[in-house]
Design a binder for these strands. Sequence first.
DNA 1: TGTGGAGTTATGTATGCACATATTTGGTGG
DNA 2: CCACCAAATATGTGCATACATAACTCCACA
Lengths: 231, 231
Amino acid sequence: MAQPVTWQTIQNEALRRIREREWKPGEMIPHEAALAEELGCARATVNRALRELAAAGFLERRRKAGTRVALNPVRKATFDIPIIRHDVEGRGAAHGYRLLERKEAEAPAGVTAMLRLPARTRLVHVAALHLADGAPFCVEDRWINPQAVPTLGEADFSGLSANEWLVQNVTLSGGSIAFFALPADARLAALLGCSVGAALFRVERTTWAGAVPITAVTLTYAPGYRMTTAI
Amino acid sequence: MAQPVTWQTIQNEALRRIREREWKPGEMIPHEAALAEELGCARATVNRALRELAAAGFLERRRKAGTRVALNPVRKATFDIPIIRHDVEGRGAAHGYRLLERKEAEAPAGVTAMLRLPARTRLVHVAALHLADGAPFCVEDRWINPQAVPTLGEADFSGLSANEWLVQNVTLSGGSIAFFALPADARLAALLGCSVGAALFRVERTTWAGAVPITAVTLTYAPGYRMTTAI
DNA sequence: TGTGGAGTTATGTATGCACATATTTGGTGG
DNA sequence: CCACCAAATATGTGCATACATAACTCCACA
């Protein structure tokens, strides 16, 4: 009548042993078959529990070598990249949106380099201001590869932001993301209603569908913005 | 001798169908048994492939209801929280470290609130400056709960940073993290060698072992720092 | 016309087995 | 003593099956 042992039980037990130093950092732990017998479950169950712990960075596993407790448990944080509208609404504010520009032009060198496109490729540039309860929230500055998005012409971005349109119309498969701080220049200061030189938070992102570059975007947030997540 | 169909094969095939709009956003997809038969593998294999896609945000699954393509695929970024020394060394620079302060004191209200401790609890405060090739890299400002870390007294943090010591001596189980930009005040400007008001990137983190608060830390990086990761 | 409960169904997960694959280890020959 | 190969072994994965669990559907009954 013993309730079945689930992989989560095993995982919690393993975490407990790690936390309480029963298994010490750098030390080998019993192999799957031994744990399965000890804990009264199948090896597959142990495998799933440990596999996820390894993915989370608590354990290091290698075939034949076995499993050891990670010496420097690399903490991994995962956080959502929400649609800006959802981000605003999640903060209890009403989302507003103003399209500033939409035109095809030669992309600056920094953009073509990030997207690994030939210099001076013509891309579609979209600039917009997102508002929260009428106050400036975020400036979206985006270059889109029209080759990768055939239906781009149909979207005018006057009502729906490029941010949202792309999420719904293109399936991405990868990319890179960077966070940093930068001082406001005159344009950003005017748009975000802050003084020149104010400390702004920026997210810079490139996205790809396979090997095809889709878009490069910078999101520059008004002062006071905090991006948060749970570990 | 058809090679065995692995879960990764299934996953790629599913991603392809999503990317190429064979399965449209919001639409139900065939149930596991049907896919297993179509693709010539066991249901468990399909399950694993789809389970991971759901975890990654591409699919939404509910018992009995079935599986549908996520309407707003929430992009998730996961990134490592490295030890600062590794971060510096990974950038090809030599890591330096200077302890600025280590003393027990009443924690400020903001810190006790974040750690859900009574106001005016006495905590250990550690402040340090990390250097990259001798240049200021990051200011570490940390409050540690001595109750949660019995061996804290043994560590003097003059050689090994608190950042690194804690990672190796305490197993964390959770916490929260926030990123934002802030202007340099006089102290930060002096430490980081920038002008007052310069735009700085800050990471604010609290960590817990179960329900026990361990530490609250702010890492403030010198101008020019970028935190990057792949999506 | 509801309304609650039973049946149905898709996903979630445990199990035992088999085999694949990566490494370590130990032995063998130059 | 070193280079190289073979055996041993821990993890990685697939499969068939069984049962658990959530939740939608529909029917019976008030």
